[in-house]
Amino acid sequence: MHILLIEDDALLGDGIQAGLQAMGFTVAWVTLARDGLAAWKSVDFDALVLDLGLPDQEGGEALCQWREAGLTAPVLILTARDAVQDRIEGLQRGADDYLIKPFDLGELAARLQVLLRRSRGQANPLIEHGRVRVDPFRQQVWLADQPVELQRREMALLLALLQSRGRLLTADQLADRVYGWVDGVESNALAVHIHNLRRKLGSSIVETVRGGGYRLGAPL
């Protein structure tokens, strides 16, 4: 699951990024509203985590502009302002949920999962694809009701494919979702993860489109 985090506090941003990554999310982190806008325009994110107190622009104001400009991804705002009026204002400006600082990382992850599920019109927290069943929140996978151990990157890859709903994803798009914006990813690293995923869940889970990229295979 690919999350764009816009948080100006270095210590907090670093903590959220590390925490969410440890829970299976792929997190791109920027510290300014304008970088957030640029990131959203260049990469397809599943959700945004937005701090309201940004140095270059007030977060709520930025969100309002982005929504007008066509941002449809769910947005969770982080705010230190807990007055009811502030919360109402945040939601009215286009946020889907809010968390008041300080918050629990587990709660942030759970709320993000709920937002993603809701944005896809999916009531069940479990994602099913043929014999494969995935609990994105607990990071658990079953094949024909048998639990399967997946590495963090493999899990991110599987979720990216499941959430694309059969849409074609280029190798770059997949790498973005799996690694975020990390330099120095080896060119064959993605191929290794795809190979492992096929080995653990059956070769038909990932379909290779020659010269195009990858897509989710037909359910078995």
Binding site: D9, L11, G15, A18, A22, A80, K101, L105
Partner: peptide, 29 residues
């Protein structure tokens, strides 16, 4: 007074959130 309270809340809550988050990350790892 409201603005001062809110600013104060922001000033104190953000580092507190960072502290708590970093501790949780350490526990996760």
């Amino acid at each position: 007074e409201r603005r001062l309270t809110d600013d104060l809340a922001h000033e104190l809550r953000t580092p507190l959130a960072a502290l708590k988050t970093q501790l949780q990350v350490a526990r996760l790892k």
